[in-house]
Design a protein around this nucleic acid. Structure first.
Lengths: 239, 239
DNA sequence: TGGAATTTCAAACGATCGTTTGAATCATCC
DNA sequence: GGATGATTCAAACGATCGTTTGAAATTCCA
């Protein structure tokens, strides 16, 4: 029952590393394809070429396996986001950073993850997109814990970069930004109907170009005059 | 085996209407809370106070029930979206419509649905948000069919309202808009971390005010100069 | 009202689920 | 090299799944 903490001597686990990694890789793929509930441990362990009991042995339960799948990618990504922001603020030397730069500091680590087909790549981002929309408590509080630190720092930086926005306005706009970003990176193509362009054209629209398109959109949205500065919009007037 | 097409005479079904509606209502709530796979027909029919076999009798299968749940709300909403756009274009008389008005024509039906707690309300929009991120083929092609007509017309209208955007650029920006919109309306609050404001403050941020905040953000993003008009952004230069 | 069609119901179908168990295998170090 | 602990394995656990069935109950129309 040592589990999850093997090899107490020199190197980290090596014998079990193969098993744990194969499980994580298979879980990442299958959870993305079929979702958490619809993925059975039997199909998962079969795909990973490990014994059925290996999941409960190494991770404790199916839920803990799911969290481990998320942690493996999210931890480094969010840490890199924080490091990039800190470097940005060091270079700025007390002055507020440019809005675009802050946005890029947040987007680039996600982009790098998406392109790292070696490990996870887009599969993981799609899985993450699903997790965002999942109301299961154990998923929601896990994501909250994972993002809390990173989000707080970025909200602070954006707040100084966009002094014309009230605190509430900023909160909502960052919500919009994260929505468009995660939705786009997840790339589930719920509306692939949009793209009636030539398919080879879409192939060439790689992730880097995608973010180059997303960035101006988000920056313009962030810099837009807040509610009330423009004429009052009559919303649900009709009917 | 008539099923799904009862009462061939005067009124639509009345005896079975109670059963079918109760099933749809319970399914809407439970699918939202636990997802499609994790919701069992036994808990569903129990919540609806109907017999277990009623789902297969009235809808054929669990999957068809899920599609019926989506259709009940999506059909009227997307139809209203089209009607509003057509009215807009009639009033404009050949001229391109204002970008804001097109956006509102798309958002208002969704908002009205969100506020109609009588039927569905936010529960359904959260369910829809989950469906967007679900890669299950039967869900994806169903959503495509549901949205295809509406999306095509709006893409056309936006294209005329934003002549400075290339076709590809427009495609992506509409993708961003739908992402931010659906993500926000779904309101899963994956990043409720943003909102450290007073809780009563968030309570008062009702849906109408939310869209009044979202609209300027999206309009500014849509109107932003396309890629290449601004200085070239060096993206993944570092590292 | 009587007969046909529709709807409800309890019960069971076979299949699959996540987890546990206890013995067998493997690696490691005294 | 033998003991110790980590890991793998086949097998089984009880539970729950979506669906089907055939009869009972209900509704509808002639």
């Amino acid at each position: 029952m040592a589990a999850t903490r093997p090899a107490r001597k020199g190197f980290p686990d090596l014998a079990s590393a193969g098993t744990k990694t194969r499980i994580l890789d298979a879980a990442e793929l299958l959870f993305m394809e079929h979702g958490f509930e619809a993925t059975s441990l039997r199909s998962l362990t079969s795909a990973a070429s490990v014994n059925l009991a290996a999941v409960n042995y190494h991770f404790g339960s199916k839920e803990e396996l799911f969290q481990a799948v998320l942690t493996r990618r999210l931890d480094p990504m969010n840490q890199e986001r924080i490091e990039r922001l800190e470097k940005l603020e060091r270079d700025a030397g007390g002055k507020p950073c440019a809005c675009e730069k802050i946005l890029f500091a947040m987007m680039i680590p996600a982009l790098k993850l998406a392109r790292d087909e070696n490990r996870g790549g887009k599969n993981f981002l799609r899985l993450l997109g699903r997790a965002y929309a999942d109301p299961a408590p154990f998923i929601r509080q896990f994501l909250s814990a994972q993002y809390a630190g990173m989000i707080a720092r970025y909200k602070d930086a954006f707040g100084r970069a966009l002094p014309h926005l009230s605190k509430q306005e900023l909160t909502w706009r960052l919500h919009f930004v994260m929505g468009a970003l995660s939705y786009t990176l997840a790339g589930t193509d719920a509306f692939k109907l949009f793209a009636q362009v030539a398919p080879n054209e879409r192939e060439r629209d790689n992730d880097e170009l995608l973010l180059q398109r997303l960035a101006p959109f988000l920056v313009a949205g962030l810099k837009a005059p807040p509610l009330g500065d423009t004429r009052k919009l009559e919303l649900v007037s009709g009917d």
